[in-house]
Structures are given as C-alpha cells and as structure tokens.
Design a protein around this nucleic acid. Structure first.
Length: 275
DNA sequence: AGCGGAACCTGTCGGC
DNA sequence: TGCCGACAGGTTCCGC
C-alpha cells in the first residue's frame, strides 16, 4: 500500500497519539507470517515497554521502545495502524492488538497479511533495514550520488528509482509522478543520463514527496490514516492511474505500460527517451 | 549484475 | 446475474 509519504503521515500521527504510553499486553488474532520469529518471544519483548518515539525509515515504521528495543513494521499493500478505544471484539482483518496502559488499543490491521512486524535490539540487526539505500529527502540524495553510482548502468530509470537498495522509500505511484515532472521516459537507460537529468530527478523527487507529505499522502483505495481519514495527494496526480486520460500539460492520452510486472503511467509527448 | 517470473494472500472491478 | 481473469500502492527468492 503505502509509500514514503503515507508512512511518514502514519508515523507522525501515531507518535502524537501514543508517545509515552505503555504496552500492557498483546493479542494476536491471526498470524499469517506477519510476525517474524517466535510469537511468544514477540509478546514478552513488548509487554511493559514504553513507546518512546515513532518514526519512519524508508517505508518502514519504527517504534522506538524503552527499555531499549525497536518494533519494526512494514505495511506492504494493505497494512494499517489504528488507535481506538478498547473494543470487545476484533474486526475482521485485525491481526494484532497492542493493548495500552491508557486503556486504548493500537491495532495492526491487514486484509492481505503481507505486512510484517519484527523486534530487534538494534535497528541494523534487521536484515531488511540494513540493506536500505539512502533517504530521498536526505542530503545524501544529490546529483553526484547518482552520477557516480549509475553512469555505467544500463538499467531503466523506473527500475532504479524503485530499487530500495539505491533510494529507499519510493514506490510505483511516486516514481511515475517524478518521471512525469522530470520529462523523462520511464524506459530510459540511466547510462545515457547527463548531470542535468539527475538534477531533475533529485529536485522533482524532493518536490513530489514534500507535496505529498503536506497532503497526508495518497489514498487510491486502501490507505487510511490513523484516524481513518484519507490522504489528499491523489488530487494532484498527473499520470498514475490515468490511462487514456488527457495529459495535463499537452492533452495527449496517458499511456500504461508494464515494467518489472508493475504498471507505469507516462505521457509519450512530455517524457522523452534519453539518447 | 540484473532481468523475468513466481510467490506471499485477499478483495475488487470490468468484460463477456 | 455469474463467472473468470486482471489487477492492486511491496518485497523476496529463484533461475538464467
């Protein structure tokens, strides 16, 4: 489901809701592989821990707990965190209840059970976290980084931007939007890129992500915020999900192609191959 | 190195 | 109406 702006939104909202609360117990309703490792150990590690901070790394939600440990969650396609008053019954797709000392519940809900929850003493003990590339909103994200790393690579730009080992946090929606704003064809091979192309990628990545965060992310179908509200960035999408609709710049119908088994949307007129 | 395909699991939507 | 295939914002593994 969510990409960087959605996870950022959830992290902020969770943090303001539950920071300082204490996990008094944990109930698990249906643990398709959601919880990594031993379930009893998972519960024991959490009980009595204080929620010290909640933040985002790439598309992962990190709960920094005290005494020191980290609950690391990936929402994948349909995962959600919801904070509510205590309920008598779990609803259909509730997977884990974190019962808080304040009497409230933090619910992990996931229709498809693709989401993950793991506990680590140190963040880098997590195999998923330690493989991640740079944060797209950090200082490291600059023209030099890409130019050095990729000037000999024949990979397509869409594939590069989706690769979490290079830049961590971009997903299918935002990559289509970034390439549209950059005027670059998604199948362009990165070895053709000049510095000015990377400048566009770097600047529009920041621009798109910052606008999306300011609008609390994009809700197409599943994404909901902690309070069940939707994000609003879908109003500003130019190409994603717009097959055959007129391009907002030139009126040409938007194309849909498949790259790496994923949909890519773009405008043939506005987005040119690099040669 | 990097690509394509399959797999994880469930729901929804469009076409016939 | 009903069935069937395609598709869904993510990641990982395997084989070539």
């Amino acid at each position: 489901m969510p990409e960087l702006p959605e996870v950022e939104t959830i992290a902020h909202e969770l943090c303001s809701e539950i920071k300082g609360d204490i996990i008094s117990s944990v109930k698990i309703f249906r643990n398709n592989p959601i919880i990594q490792g031993d379930i009893e150990k998972f519960k024991l590690e959490l009980i009595g821990k204080k929620i010290f901070d909640v933040y985002r790394r790439a598309k992962y939600l990190i709960f920094h707990l005290k005494p020191r440990c980290f609950l690391i969650s990936h929402l994948r396609m349909t995962g959600k965190f919801i904070v509510s008053q205590y309920l008598s019954e779990p609803s259909k797709y509730n997977r884990v209840w974190f019962i808080l000392k304040s009497g409230r519940l933090m619910i992990f809900d996931d229709v498809r059970c693709f989401g993950t929850l793991e506990i680590q003493k140190k963040l880098n003990d997590s195999n998923s976290i330690k493989k991640l590339g740079i944060e797209p909103l950090s200082k490291e994200m600059d023209t030099e980084f890409f130019f050095k790393k990729l000037s000999n690579s024949k990979r397509e730009i869409k594939s590069v931007l989706l690769d979490q080992k290079i830049v961590a946090g971009l997903g299918n929606i935002y990559v289509s939007e970034i390439l549209f704003r950059s005027g670059i064809h998604p199948e362009s091979s990165v070895c053709k890129f000049r510095k000015k192309d990377w400048v566009k990628i770097v600047n529009f990545t920041r621009e798109v992500l910052e606008e999306a965060i300011a609008n609390n992310g994009t809700t197409i179908s599943d994404f909901r915020r902690v309070d069940d509200k939707t994000g609003q960035f879908q109003k500003f999408l130019n190409v994603y999900g717009k097959k055959n609709e007129p391009c907002t710049k030139c009126g040409t119908p938007i194309q849909r192609i498949v790259q790496q088994q994923r949909s890519t949307f773009f405008c043939l007129e506005c987005q040119k191959f690099k040669t």
